[in-house]
Nucleic acid binder design. Structure first.
Lengths: 396, 396
DNA sequence: CCCAGTTATTACGAGCTCGGAATAATACCT
DNA sequence: AGGTATTATTCCGAGCTCGTAATAACTGGG
């Protein structure tokens, strides 16, 4: 009878690419839910069950999907046969680096972690050396059967140039300006390679692996040496003009100080300060007297160390302010906090939630749930892997 | 050979609805550009020229489109025949109201203005009365041949409940709480009726009639009794959870004062204030001594009245701060300022642009062009009409 | 245990969309 | 002015997707 739902994505098409696009969409839905029957797929993709049957059969035959054995009985009638991802269909690789460490991870097609690897970066190491290490460490997690390698994602701290595949700048590694990364990695491993700034990649990680699996639109806050927001709208990353969206580390925001009882007040200063100079992990550690590593900070906070509590809570004040501003602007379904601070524990989570609600109290607007990422220390690398997951299409 | 680009919008389908959706998309592209040939349509919609031919012929035959006579010679070869909208295919109606005035407009299918009407709202008038006036004034602009009426859009100041078609609240009209609007208008005119808050509707007006015609993603700032941002992403309105996005009037922001020479400084206060208590037209007028109407303010500013300049420029400082924050977050391609302040003239525009650039100067991020809306005093009503334009589909 | 009721999946004919070829309409060159 | 190159649009056979109908696989009740 008749066909075509709606217009394709604006780019090219050509035979195979079209149906590969639909198949990618189909796989994404299965990925987001963990398993769907043909009939459910037909519903969400608004294609007829007959057509879905054709697509699923093909993907089944090509080994991307498997028929789950658990038949789901939903009331009376023939139970639906769940279709799931075939873990053996391939592996996604992600790598994440910053001034102190490089981390890599490989994930199978059903998004189970296969291998992890990490390596410290020495103080003052130069960009070229770091990139070399990145390549080496990717080599450690790449599947031995190279045919299984579906692609490599790279999360770079700071802005990136998507067109040229370079990292534009990152002030905490020497010589780190306009560094070409995509090209060397692609040459070495001969697979698709994608780059994004880590904050955006993290949003995709939450979308595919984490707290955003069930949501259409949310924001993730990535906090480490800087602060960036990854914005997901309709299950797509919104990165703005020239990949510039989410740079809320540059927001000018008020400063808070925490009394020992945990209450917050504005510091009596006129000056507003860049959010990332107040509330990034780096800024927090720099505020404390002496040498504080991220791990030490987390441990101290969890052990109720008063100095750590005071400084972190003050930062939380500014973060809450930022979350409130973000909510006024975007009304996301959820805000996910990712990065080392996500490990601060329930105390911190509820403090942040309360403070955010307080910031929004004068208005009647809906306060979004603030969730802590549970992706753990390799979350950055998972974010990078999610880049590949997000762009994967079946070969045609 | 093969078909279907990509998945349909998530809602329903059924035969006619599918192809109506594609046709609506086709008409939107013509609307945005003002005229396209079949071959260009094929390119942007990623359908084959053959298929486009079928669609265009049908819409031509049904009277929605006309073949332009100007054949565009683009180098050598057969010139393309431009397809344009048929102005006589129907009319869109929009109505906008606030505490002081109700404005309505009708627009033909090729988006030329047909009729305008307005009526003042008396001080202290109650909600029920205002709604009655809204209906009356819509009646003045509705096409006499009711078959031409394609739909009515309503822009409501403040939050709306899309599901029930009610205005949730607006503090500057008495009794204005949970007012049902859609139903009475629909009953009276027997046509599709849509409601949105005016800020969001304005964004659609800029998208279809104004400064956003050539853009994919931008933000429009609507400033009158409050301040709201309308966010367009990929030529779609993003309205967030529960239609809550863009409420940046609630942003806490720093206060400025303007020296007579136009220079800005922070006012030496710790307190942050809601943006709309500083920079809305209402707030500006309230700041000035005596009774100031919007018109008086605009005239005084344009005549270089020092008091008006000082107050408006101080507000511009906060606005520039807000635009900067917005840009850090969303990196829009453009920021459009809509509402009465858009008529302040070039002086104000360049002052605002300069100040915004100054706010963003510490970073290397791209400063977006700030444009003034040119839609004029009926811009709110046009925004409401744009609601209908945006949702129009051919009958099938 | 069999049967009716319910829901998921597959089979099949019809029509819509596609790619490629044919045709139309112009510019530019000689 | 006529021929050639170039580009837009239409024509046509092939195949993909759709709706309908048939079939499969269960639940629950007598």
């Amino acid at each position: 009878m008749l066909h075509r739902g709606v217009i394709r994505p604006n780019n090219v098409q050509k035979k195979g690419a079209i149906i590969a696009g639909v198949e990618a969409e189909l796989v994404k839905h299965i990925r987001a839910t963990g398993g769907l029957s043909r009939i459910e797929l037909a519903k969400v993709l608004t294609l007829s069950p007959s057509t879905i049957g054709v697509y699923v059969d093909r993907l089944l035959h090509e080994g991307y999907l498997v028929e789950g054995d658990r038949k789901v009985p939903c009331g009376a009638g023939r139970p639906r046969t769940t279709i799931a991802l075939n873990p053996n269909a391939g592996q996604f690789v992600g790598v994440d680096f910053h001034a102190k460490e490089i981390l890599a991870v490989s994930v199978d097609f059903a998004q189970n972690i296969v291998k992890q690897a990490s390596r410290p970066v020495r103080r003052g190491e130069r960009a070229a050396k770091v990139i070399q290490s990145v390549v080496d460490i990717v080599d450690e997690v790449v599947p031995s059967d190279r045919k299984l390698l579906l692609g490599i994602g790279i999360g770079s701290p700071g802005p990136v140039d998507l067109e040229h595949g370079t990292a534009v700048e990152y002030r905490y590694i020497r010589d780190f300006n306009d560094v070409p990364i995509v090209k060397p990695v692609m040459r070495r491993f001969n697979a698709p390679v994608y780059i994004e700034n880590t904050a955006n990649a993290m949003a995709l990680a939450e979308l595919w692996f984490g707290q955003g699996r069930d949501l259409n639109s949310f924001v993730s806050l990535w906090i480490r040496s800087g602060i960036g927001a990854g914005i997901i709208i309709n299950r797509q990353l919104y990165s703005g003009l020239a990949d510039g969206a989410g740079e809320i580390g540059a927001w000018r925001c008020p400063l808070y100080k925490a009394a020992p009882d945990g209450k917050l007040e504005r510091r009596d200063e006129t000056t507003l300060c860049d959010l990332q100079e107040i509330a990034s992990v780096r800024a927090i550690c720099d505020t404390l007297p002496g040498r504080w590593s991220t791990d030490r900070l987390i441990r101290a906070y969890r052990k109720q160390d008063p100095a750590a509590r005071e400084v972190v809570n003050a930062a939380a004040g500014s973060l809450a302010w930022a979350i409130a501003q973000l909510t006024f602007c975007l009304a996301p379904e959820r805000v996910v906090l990712a990065g080392p601070l996500a490990d601060l524990g329930d105390d911190f989570a509820s403090f942040l939630a309360t403070t955010t609600a307080a910031c929004m109290a004068p208005t009647r607007l809906h306060v979004p749930p603030v969730a802590m990422s549970t992706l753990g220390p390799f979350s950055g690398a998972l974010g990078a892997a999610a880049l590949v997951v997000d762009r994967w299409k079946p070969a045609r």
